[in-house]
Simulated scan of single mutants.
Amino acid sequence: MNALDYFNARLEATISPMDYLRSKQIESEKYFLIDVRNGPTHVRSLTIEDANIIPEQELPERISEIPKDKEIIVYCWDVWCNTAAKVAKFLLEQGYKVKELTGGIAAWQQMNFPVSKSNNISDNCGC
């Protein structure tokens, strides 16, 4: 793979927090954002505003909650976390159109974008 192919593939598979926020403001119904983070409840209490919380370990039994007619955006903790990439791969194999939010919730918070407290968190941390 040459550099151009690499960057084209990377841009096709990811979306930056700024690009996602801008695109969602233009076409709010186009996207379905999923917080796929695993971990203890107390560390997952903040989530990106309007995100659907479906931890990676719950995904197979909750896949029916994910619409096939929207572009799915998945995120996890940070650039060092590969949970969102694993979920994206799984959803792509199921026929979904998926992108990973680059930098996860850490990048989102760093940019001071809207977050909210989540009341819909399962206690099964998947640790």
Rank of each mutant, 00 (worst) to 15 (best):
M1A: 13
L4I: 12
F7S: 13
N8W: 01
A9D: 14
L11P: 00
A13M: 11
A13Q: 14
T14L: 05
T14I: 01
I15M: 03
I15A: 00
S16V: 02
Y20K: 01
R22F: 07
K24E: 11
K24W: 05
Q25T: 10
Q25G: 09
E29M: 06
Y31P: 02
Y31A: 05
Y31W: 05
F32K: 01
F32D: 01
L33D: 06
I34M: 07
V36F: 05
R37H: 06
N38K: 14
G39V: 07
G39Q: 07
T41W: 11
H42D: 15
H42W: 13
R44N: 15
S45R: 13
L46G: 02
I48F: 03
I48M: 09
E49T: 09
E49K: 04
I53L: 09
I53Y: 06
I53H: 10
I54R: 03
E56I: 03
Q57Y: 11
E58H: 13
E58C: 07
P60F: 11
E61R: 12
R62G: 09
R62H: 15
S64L: 10
I66M: 09
P67T: 11
P67F: 01
K70A: 07
E71P: 02
E71S: 02
I73Q: 03
I73N: 02
Y75C: 00
C76H: 07
W77K: 10
D78Q: 08
V79L: 13
C81T: 10
N82M: 09
T83C: 08
A84G: 12
A84D: 03
A85L: 11
K86H: 12
V87E: 03
V87Q: 06
F90K: 06
L92N: 14
E93Q: 12
E93W: 05
Q94P: 09
Y96L: 00
Y96G: 00
K97S: 11
K97W: 02
K99L: 03
K99R: 15
E100Y: 03
E100M: 09
E100W: 05
E100D: 11
G103M: 07
I105T: 09
A106C: 04
Q109T: 09
Q110L: 11
M111E: 14
F113Y: 15
P114Y: 06
K117E: 14
S118A: 15
N119Y: 08
N120F: 05
I121Q: 06
D123F: 04
D123Y: 07
G126A: 10
C127W: 08
